[in-house]
Amino acid sequence: MTPERRLHVVSGKGGTGKTTVAAALALALAEEGRRTLLVEVEGRQGIAQLFETQALPYEERRIAIGPGGGEVYALAIDTEKALLDYLQMFYKLGGAGRALRRIGAIDFATTIAPGLRDVLLTGKVCEATRRRGPDGGFVYDAVVMDAPPTGRVTRFLGVNDEVADLAKVGPIHHQAQAVMRVLKSAETAVHLVTLLEEMPVQETADGVAELRAAELPVGTVVVNMVRPPVEGPAAPAGVDRRELAAALRSAGLRAPTRLVDPLLDEGAAHAERRSLEAAQRAELAALGLPVRELPLLADGADLAGLYRLARRLREHAW
């Protein structure tokens, strides 16, 4: 029995809906009596938009109850505050932290040396994952991170390896090593969100290879926004357009002959899309990872849709 996965990193190509999937996963994992934390690291306030609440402050606050009855907390990390926090926590800098800000050191850290931002974000997430309450148990049963896109996620997660090389001694070195130990452990899984389209699938395959090369644990491939295939009979080798028009007429449609071409065009495009999707499914299957599919939400990712996705995700082990 492998240890329970407690840190779920959700990444995906831009436009695949990774924030939505991360939120749905945090809901799904919040079973009765459990507590999950959903962390946003890119400062877009996408979580607040999804949950239809005001912008999240930099604090962990309860945002929802999962379909299983557990609590979901959310945190939008503010890099500058995280840095001051971090300095305070590890070095008890007090007023010196404010001084650092005044002379521009914080600007330096969060913009010019943006690698440090990644250090802070991964550090904060690992801290939340490892945090224990007064009873000695973990404060959060699971932490779900809405991570940077696939093209950047390996570097993002691996930043502490680089830091450990740069800062060869001292507390930052040790902190960086500790974070990497968590990220590379069996407690962590990196899930990649994709669509059934060529470029996102290609990027997913590349991402999986990069993560594996960096010894980061790859979890599940989530295929998002899967459109329901339309049920229907197989077509014959040819179509009799007059018969088709007659059928449309018999169903009470007006000007059926003018509908024949557009309908056949749409049918052909549908069939082509389906066969492209089949090819993409095969590519994903070849990755040797669990693949889960989520349906396209007809009304967009609103709160009701989010819960529907969460119920779907609950059907699987994560």
Partner: peptide, 28 residues
């Protein structure tokens, strides 16, 4: 894959395999 959404009207499991090369031409 359980792709279909339970709430969807057209929620079947099948596609509509129309051979691309055979349609869209007049008089086929």
């Amino acid at each position: 894959h359980k792709t279909t959404d339970g709430g969807h009207d057209s929620g079947g499991q099948h596609g509509i395999p129309i051979p691309r090369e055979d349609i869209g031409h007049e008089g086929t």
